[in-house]
C-alpha cells in the first residue's frame, strides 16, 4: 500500500515537471525552429515541427542588411558599457555601504534605491526625454549607458554589498599596517577578494541591459538602435515577415539562455532585492 502510494506520488511529481518543462521550453523551440523555416513552412497547417527542410535564408537576410550588424554591435557595446560602468560605480558605493553601516547619507541613499526599483521607468523617461532633447543628448550611446547604469543601480548595490561585507576587516587593517592608502587597500586587497561577487553581478547586469527596451527606444535614435528596439520595429512594419523576426528574436535570446545556466545560483541575491541571501 505504502509502496503504491509512493509510486503514485512520483508519477505525479514527474508529470507536473514534464508539463512545466514543455510549457517553458516550447515557445523557445518554436521561435528557433521558425527562424530556420522557409516562408511557406512558417504558417503551414498542420504546423511543421520537425518535417521541414531547414534554411539559413532568414539569417542571411538579416546579416546582409548592414543596419542589423550595426544593431547587434550596438547591443553588445551598450551591454558591456553599462555592465562595466555599473560595476565601477556600484562596487565603490557597495563597499562604502558595507563598511559604514550607519553613515549619514545611508538612509537617503537606501530610500532612493528602493524608489528607483519600485517606480515604473516611464515616470523618469518622460522628463528625461524633455531634458535630453533640450541638451541635444538624444541618440548618444554614452548617455544611454549612463542612464541605464542608474536604473540598474539598485540591483548592482544589493547584489554587491553582501560580498564586500563578507570580507574580513582584518585583511584591510593588515594592509593599513603595511602603509597602503585607502584606495590601494580597495584596489589591491578588497577588489580581488570580491571578484566572484563582482563577476556574478556583471553577468546579471549584462542580462538586464541586453533586455532593456524603454531607455534605448525613447532616448536613442537610428544610430543607437539595440536589438529589442529593432525587434519592436518589426511589428509596426506593414507586412509581418515572421522568418527574419524569429531569427532576430533567436539571436536576442540564445546568448541569454546559455548564460542562464551558468549564473542561476547567483541570481537569487540579485532578484530578491538583496533581501534574501543564498
Amino acid at each position: 500500500m505504502m509502496y503504491i502510494k509512493k509510486r503514485l506520488a512520483r508519477i505525479f511529481v514527474y508529470s507536473v515537471l514534464t508539463i512545466t518543462l514543455f510549457t517553458s521550453l516550447f515557445p523557445i523551440f518554436w521561435t528557433i525552429s521558425t527562424s530556420f523555416k522557409k516562408r511557406v513552412d512558417t504558417f503551414a497547417l498542420p504546423p511543421k515541427f520537425f518535417n521541414f527542410s531547414p534554411t539559413m535564408d532568414n539569417y542571411k537576410k538579416l546579416f546582409s542588411d548592414p543596419t542589423f550588424v550595426k544593431v547587434y554591435l550596438n547591443t553588445i557595446l551598450f551591454t558591456l558599457g553599462a555592465a562595466f560602468l555599473s560595476i565601477c560605480i556600484g562596487s565603490l558605493a557597495a563597499y562604502a555601504l558595507a563598511r559604514n553601516p550607519r553613515f549619514r547619507g545611508k538612509a537617503t541613499f537606501e530610500i532612493l534605491l528602493i524608489l528607483l526599483r519600485a517606480m515604473p521607468g516611464v515616470v523618469l523617461i518622460v522628463p528625461l526625454y524633455d531634458l535630453c532633447s533640450k541638451l541635444h543628448l538624444l541618440g548618444e550611446l554614452p548617455v544611454l549607458i549612463t542612464i541605464i547604469t542608474v536604473f540598474n543601480l539598485p540591483f548592482t548595490i544589493w547584489m554587491l554589498t553582501p560580498f564586500f561585507a563578507a570580507i574580513p576587516i582584518e585583511l584591510e587593517e593588515a594592509g593599513m599596517v603595511d602603509g597602503l592608502s585607502t584606495w590601494q587597500i580597495f584596489r589591491q586587497i578588497v577588489m580581488p577578494l570580491a571578484l566572484p561577487g563582482i563577476s556574478a553581478a556583471a553577468i546579471f547586469l549584462s542580462l538586464l541591459t541586453w533586455n532593456e527596451f524603454l531607455v534605448p527606444v525613447i532616448l536613442g535614435d537610428q544610430s543607437t538602435q539595440t536589438l529589442p528596439v529593432l525587434i519592436s520595429g518589426f511589428i509596426s512594419a506593414r507586412t509581418l515577415d515572421w522568418g527574419p523576426m524569429a531569427a532576430a528574436s533567436s539571436l536576442a535570446i540564445i546568448p541569454i539562455a546559455v548564460l542562464t545556466v551558468f549564473v542561476q545560483r547567483k541570481l537569487v541575491v540579485g532578484l530578491s532585492l538583496g533581501a534574501l541571501k543564498e
Binding site: P27, I231, F234, I235, A252, I256, L259, Q264
Partner: peptide
C-alpha cells in the same frame, strides 16, 4: 533531474521581454 528541470524552468525568466512577447504574438 532536479537541476536540469531547474535551469530549463529559469530560462524564460531572463529572456528579453520584447523578444518573448514577439514570439507569443506569433503563436
Amino acid at each position: 533531474f532536479a537541476s536540469m528541470f531547474r535551469s530549463s524552468l529559469l530560462i524564460p525568466m531572463l529572456l528579453t521581454p520584447v523578444a518573448v512577447a514577439l514570439m507569443w504574438r506569433f503563436m
